[in-house]
Simulated scan of single mutants.
Amino acid sequence: MKINKKDLTFFHLLVAPGVLVLLLFSYLPMFGIVIAFQNFNPSKGFIFSEWVGFEHVRFLFELPDTMGTIRNTIEISLMKIVAGLVVPVVFALFLNEARIMWFKRTVQSLVYLPHFLSWVILGGILVDVLSINGGAFNQALQSVGIPPIFFFGDEFWFRIMIVVSDVWKEFGFSTIVYLAALTGINPALYEAAAIDGATRWKRTLYITIPGILPVIVLMSTLSLGNVLNAGFDQIFNLYNPMVISSTDIIDTYIYRMGLIQAQYGLATAIGLIKSVIGFVLIVISYRLASRYANYRIF
């Protein structure tokens, strides 16, 4: 079959805007990595700023807040990853058992909707609902004699709120992935198991879960690349000085160092370290996905 070069040119033109955006906003800014090794001065630019080598990296680990920030990032990320894997699987299994199609589709659409909302909007909703002064949730607790919970001032409850709200926002998207995997299971397996007298629970345990296990393994391994991404948008819109010691993450640390305190070199060094570690974790996760879930990109 002969390829028409005019058709290829048309498709290349379609791809060109996306490639241009990728180059401008993803690859071109990489030259800014040199700021991590400079005492960067915006008035002097990249060329004339003083070169300090690895001084920012050394100074970074001498700061008292650095290790606490890294620990917070890993702890919050792991909690989100575990909850973000368990909840969608359980919900997909329950939703898959629904036999009324309009109900199943409605619920699926409703749980998917929060995925499209920004944390600016959801942050305002959470403040209104969970506020200790007039929040709907705390008013409901007080109506049954339970003391109100200071979600935005108690470090323990703030972390719980962060994890739960993140799962609520994103589990609908993951649920769709697992529902799609459930459709790939051969119905004959269920029919044979039912004839043999297997209960619905036994069919779920020995047919459904093993049937979607490769997808669960795949999603688990790919999530390793997000260990250092605890969710800047969410935490930045919700945290405050009362809980900053337990919820300050790498991204908010970079924001304060770079944009608030104008320590550009130090902030870039933190971001570079995070990017290098994240790249290594992504490579490891893809290796694991290729080995245990037969998932390959290249």
Rank of each mutant, 00 (worst) to 15 (best):
L22E: 11
L22D: 09
L23M: 14
L24E: 14
F25S: 14
S26Q: 12
S26L: 12
Y27C: 12
Y27K: 12
L28Y: 13
L28R: 06
P29L: 02
M30N: 11
G32I: 06
I35N: 03
A36S: 11
A36M: 05
F40K: 00
F40T: 02
N41Y: 07
S43I: 13
K44E: 15
F46W: 12
I47S: 11
I47L: 12
I47K: 09
S49F: 07
S49L: 07
E50V: 06
W51Q: 14
V52W: 09
F54A: 12
F54Y: 10
E55N: 13
E55W: 13
V57E: 04
F59Q: 09
F61R: 09
F61W: 10
P64T: 09
D65A: 05
T66V: 02
M67G: 05
G68M: 05
G68Y: 04
T69G: 06
T69M: 01
R71C: 08
R71W: 13
T73R: 03
T73W: 06
I74P: 10
I74F: 13
E75G: 02
I76R: 01
I81C: 04
I81L: 06
V82T: 06
V82S: 08
V82C: 07
V82W: 08
A83Q: 07
G84F: 05
G84T: 10
L85S: 05
V86A: 09
V87K: 01
P88Y: 03
V89N: 00
V90Q: 03
F91V: 10
A92L: 07
A92C: 05
F94M: 08
L95C: 05
L95N: 00
L95G: 00
N96Q: 10
A98N: 11
A98H: 09
A98E: 14
R99W: 14
R99E: 10
M101Y: 15
M101C: 09
M101I: 15
M101R: 15
W102G: 11
